[in-house]
Design a protein around this nucleic acid. Structure first.
Length: 869
RNA sequence: GCCGCUGUGGUGAAAUGGUAAACACAGCAGACUUAAAAUCUGCUGGGAUAACAUCCCUUGUCGGUUCGAGUCCGACCAGCGGCACCA
């Protein structure tokens, strides 16, 4: 290895170089080039010539970035460094490591930017990806770039469209498993029946239409009645849309979380989002009308306390049952409710509103007539859009009943001392006929049986989760592989994939719900009788399966080769990816969607595990130096490029890991960056010395081929042990502090034992790979037999010697009544009795015992003695 | 309102129920230097005291379990995040 000398002192470069504590700006790009040229992190697949089937696999995944024009922010390298350390460590520990990177590049921001600048999104997307790739390469991440994926690449979205066709041509059977639609065809079901069961289906339901963005949005993309992207107003309007039947998997999406190593908080977030609740459907006859209303309730035991009924204002039964004299009031109320945005509807939630329909329902348990109201506190989209109101034991019903002076009837006896009005917890049934005296849980069971016997209702489970609105009226997304003919839709043949979007000069939204693809009249026309679907898929589509594509990114025959999928996604656990690191912002959306698609592919036999991600870790947000969230408007944004320029990639990597626990929210500190930078410089100076005048670095004469003394050996082996354990636990901050301790010990030694330092560099290399490789190469120039030949990243993680950790003497603490009173160094082998005798003999101990006899003596060998008097 | 997470020095933080504050930042002092920067060495939770001897206090608050609690249990307070008329 040739060593590039520093620039001579007379050049202007010199002052620049001299400021740096070590010449990272020279060797960091050098090693990045070297890794790339030698494909140091190329990962062979099963079947490849250089594949070693005897090694276990480790699939470590980052949430791939959306390549924006702003470039990387400091949050990206946080998770990416964590996975890089793990990946490099696992590689050194004998694993076949899959650690890839790619781009989630379809979607609204790119298109909004394109519209603003007039540039085609394909061009801006390419530029942004170039920028991101360059930035990531400058951080020295050990990706296999041959596996890079890009969701906007036809070779990629071909398979996104292919998976959509699988969803389109599948249904869920009685056992809750996805099966091919051909099974239904074989049963002779009609076209309409089949279409109503597809996992991808057409719906005319009201959707979130955002005029400003010119598209509909999924419920999840609407926050407080405004679009998540841009914060524009969103209105409800009925439109013909593609939906994905994720609700058919609601129960499995809850149940199958159990086998995963995910943070409990994220599992809870998903469970709450899916929102399972158990209850019953109860059917009420409408008095003097040929109509019935079915309600969903979680408290069927309170049926005797139902004193009125509420149906959602937009419910279709309203017109059918409303009394003529109420028609005007109902129409007026519906107008008011309809004009409210979702935001207003939540803001005005405090004050209950509603209108009496003039109709009555008959309570099946006692045949009492109860009034039917409409009110916007009942949602059309949840349950049946109708409720039985039990004001005595439901907070909302109680508020409503109080406002409109409706009767309140107690049917639950709360524990002594509690007010029954508005009591919503469990108690004992009263005023409830055959339920009287039963505790809530039993009353629920009894009424369910009763309802079922009479054919009036039955136990049901309800979910908050809605089906996934999957179409967008935008240009920059995957076109649907669907054509329309005579009012019917069907999938295009797989041989016609990928279906490219048309090349449009004008890709702006039309300003109407008509998608921009409608402008490409030639493209739209599929045949004389058929036209193409004009919607595109949402941004989430591409990220639902990208982890699978990494396993076999170049495959042109299949979305992922069978053998590659079995190897990288297999391993005997429910989830295939061994470690997935990313931000909490994707806790529900992306992670739920990806799990849903994966289960469909699993049921249909295309993948070998029921879950995509076995272990999930969320990195915490990095705040600005002021403790506030980083944002342009606050001016507290830290640009990773600036940090790399000033302190180097290794310092950035190390600082991001040293800040604190990975999962914690933590503020940035430039002083902290300087701290780890100084640490790296100290490591550098273990090996190198700088000539005072010329500034040229050369190998330190203190570096010698001698064995390390006992104290240094201990520090080194403790570091090997602790770093290995801490990397597995993702406790990078404590691993780094241990390396600092070790370095401080080496710094204090007159002679630097070269082979011990090489071992230390192996431990350091996953964290600061450039510096470690450079120093190893420098050492190799003088001690070729001591240094690692080739890349440190290809070397084997050192094993520690437990014997080296043991000291001859340990400090033992003497306590009296739990308070520290004396310390003594004793031989490691000292027996319990010997230590106890020493403690009792201590004058300090005796002083605090005040002559009293010891009631109890606790001895923890090697640790402490506690004397209780 | 409901659910979850977090509360430790001036700051980021560390601590299998066993010496609270490792490691780093900031600060102070010293060495080197004509000087500064860099580097190296030392000190650095609060209080009492002449004392670097010694004692007392200290992990959001209050209780409990234990020989011993930052750690386990209970109640409360504060901050952050999620959901929010979900029947």
């Amino acid at each position: 290895m040739l060593i590039r000398p520093s620039a001579p002192s007379c050049t202007p470069l010199m002052s620049e170089q001299q400021r740096k504590a070590f010449p990272f700006s020279e060797f960091e790009p050098k090693w990045q080039d070297e890794w790339e040229a030698k494909k140091a992190f190329h990962t062979p697949n099963p079947g490849d010539a250089d594949f070693d089937a005897t090694k276990p696999k480790y699939f470590v995944l980052d949430m791939f970035p959306y390549p924006s024009g702003a470039g990387l922010h400091v949050g990206h390298p946080e998770g990416y460094t964590a996975t890089d350390i793990i990946g490099r460590f696992k590689k050194m520990s004998g694993f076949n490591v899959l650690h890839p990177m790619g781009w989630d590049a379809f979607g609204l921001p790119a298109e909004q930017y394109a519209i603003k600048t007039g540039q085609h999104p394909r061009i801006t997307t390419e530029q942004n990806i170039e920028g991101f790739r360059g930035q990531l390469k400058r951080l020295g991440f050990a990706y296999d770039w041959d596996r890079e994926v890009n969701t906007t690449d036809p070779g990629y979205f071909k398979w996104t469209q292919w998976i959509f066709l699988k969803l389109y041509n599948a249904y869920v059977n009685e056992e809750g498993k996805a099966r091919p639609i051909s099974e239904l065809e074989a049963q002779g079901l009609s076209r309409a029946e089949i279409d109503s069961r597809r996992l991808a289906y057409i719906s005319e339901a009201p959707v979130n239409w955002c005029p400003e963005l010119g598209t509909v949005l999924a419920n999840e993309e609407v926050v407080d009645g405004k679009s998540e992207v841009g914060g524009f107003a969103v209105e409800r309007r009925p439109m013909r849309q593609w939906m994905l039947r994720i609700t058919a998997f609601a129960q499995r999406l809850i149940d199958e979380l159990d086998g995963l190593d995910w943070p409990e908080s994220i599992r809870l977030l998903q469970r709450n989002w899916i929102g399972r609740s158990e209850g019953a459907h109860v059917t009420f006859q409408v008095a003097q009308a040929d109509a019935e209303i079915t309600v969903f309730t979680t408290r069927p035991d309170t049926l005797f306390g139902a004193t009125y009924m509420v149906i959602a204002p937009e419910h279709s039964l309203v017109d059918q049952i409303a009394a003529p004299e109420q028609a005007a009031a109902i129409a007026a109320y519906r107008r008011v409710v309809g004009s409210k945005s979702d935001l207003e509807r939540t803001e005005l939630a405090k004050e209950k509103t509603g209108v009496f329909t003039g109709a009555y329902a008959i309570n099946p348990v006692n045949n009492e007539q109860i009034p039917i109201w409409i009110a916007d506190y009942v949602m059309m989209g949840y349950g049946t859009g109708a409720i039985m109101a039990v004001p005595a034991h439901d907070t909302r019903d109680f508020e409503f009943a109080t406002k409109f002076d409706l009767p309140v009837k107690q049917v639950v006896q709360p524990p002594a001392g509690k007010e029954w009005q508005g009591y919503t917890d469990d108690g004992i049934a009263i005023n409830s006929g055959f339920l009287d005296g039963l505790p809530t849980a039993e009353a629920k069971k009894k009424i369910a049986v009763w309802l079922e016997e009479k054919g009036l209702g039955k136990g049901t489970t309800n979910f908050k989760l809605r089906d996934w609105l999957f179409s967008r009226q935008r240009y920059w997304g995957e076109p649907f592989p669907i054509v329309w003919e005579d009012g019917n839709h069907h999938g295009i043949p797989e041989s016609e994939l990928p279906l490219l979007p048309p090349t449009l000069e004008d890709f702006r939204p039309t300003g109407t719900p008509e998608p921009p693809l409608s402008k490409a009249t030639d493209w739209v026309r599929y045949s004389d009788t058929a036209t193409r679907e004009l919607n595109t898929m949402p941004q989430w589509a591409g990220s639902c399966w990208y982890y699978l594509r990494y396993c076999d990114a170049q495959n042109s025959d299949r979305f992922v080769g069978e053998e590659a999928e079995k190897y990288w996604m297999g391993g005997g656990k429910p989830g295939g990816v061994d470690l997935y690191v990313g931000g909490t912002e994707h806790a529900v959306l992306h992670l739920l969607y990806a799990r849903f698609w994966h289960k469909v592919l699993f049921d249909l036999g295309y993948v070998s595990t029921p879950e995509p991600f076995q272990r999930l870790v969320n990195q915490g947000l990095i705040m600005g130096e002021d403790g506030q969230k980083m944002s342009k408007s606050r001016g507290n944004v830290v640009n990773p490029d600036d940090v790399v320029k000033e302190y180097g990639a290794d310092a950035l990597r190390l600082y991001e890991m040293f800040m604190g626990p990975l999962e914690q929210v933590k503020p940035w500190s430039m002083k902290g960056v300087e701290g780890v930078y100084r640490f790296l410089a100290r490591v550098w100076r273990l090996v190198m010395v700088q000539h005072e005048e010329s500034g040229v670095w050369s190998l330190s004469p203190a570096l010698q081929d001698v064995p390390a003394n006992k104290q240094l050996t201990k520090a080194l082996h403790e570091t090997i042990k602790k770093c290995g354990e801490d990397i597995e636990k993702l406790s990078f901050n404590t691993a780094i502090s241990q390396m600092m301790v070790c370095t401080n010990a080496f710094t204090g030694a007159e002679i630097k034992p070269a082979s011990a330092i090489v071992t230390f560099l192996k431990v350091l290399s996953p964290f600061a790979p450039h510096l470690a490789e450079e120093l190893n190469a420098r050492i190799a120039s003088q001690f070729p037999d001591l240094a690692v030949k080739g890349f440190l990243s290809d070397s084997v993680w050192p094993t520690y010697d437990p014997a080296a950790l043991i000291e001859d003497e340990v400090e033992v603490v003497f306590q009296v009544n739990g308070k520290l009173r004396d310390k003594v160094r004793v031989p490691i082998a000292a027996s319990k009795e010997e230590i106890e005798a020493l403690a009792l003999a201590s004058t300090r101990v005796q002083e605090f015992m005040e002559g009293k006899p010891a009631k109890k003596v606790i001895v923890v060998p090697g640790k402490l003695v506690n004397i209780v008097v």
